[in-house]
Nucleic acid binder design. Structure first.
Length: 130
DNA sequence: GCCTTGACGCGGA
DNA sequence: CTCCGCGCCAAGG
């Protein structure tokens, strides 16, 4: 003040969020409004916010994702989160999220097994924010 | 104030 | 289908 008079927002929103970064709150807000049975990619969330990038969204969820439906945010590949595949898969089935089985496609494949979990069908589950 | 790390995305081989 | 490398932006040490 005085010298610079920066365009800082009102300190009102400072306590509104609590204490997490502004960008993090935006990401969590978007994730929290994703309807059940739908999913968004990290890149879509970033694009929806018109700022940051897919990596930034991922980091926010990694740190504060425990407070939101993190399972509704996946990679553009449709692959589930490593280490939380079972947790996410259970949520998808409970919400009716369109999944695509990796099995039943080929004659024999029982190899990778553990990593042969189904992936989210982005083609149907992708939510554009409407 | 610089450097490193990331729940990523995409194109090419 | 899988594997490799580069790019991007933000937060923490």
């Amino acid at each position: 003040m005085g010298k610079n008079a920066p365009v800082t927002e009102n300190s009102a929103d400072q306590r509104a969020t609590g204490e997490l970064p502004p960008f993090a709150e935006l990401v969590l807000d978007v994730v929290d409004r994703i309807p059940a049975g739908r999913v968004m990619t990290y890149g879509d969330v970033a694009e929806y916010l018109e700022q940051g990038g897919p990596r930034q969204v991922g980091r926010v969820l990694a740190l504060y994702g425990s407070a939101v439906a993190w399972w509704r945010v996946i990679r553009a590949d449709g692959a589930l989160l490593p280490g939380h595949e079972q947790r996410a898969l259970a949520a998808y089935r409970a919400e009716g999220t369109p999944l695509r089985s990796t099995a039943g496609r080929g004659p024999v494949r029982g190899s990778q097994a553990a990593e042969d979990l189904p992936r989210v069908d982005l083609r149907r589950a992708r939510w554009d924010g409407r």
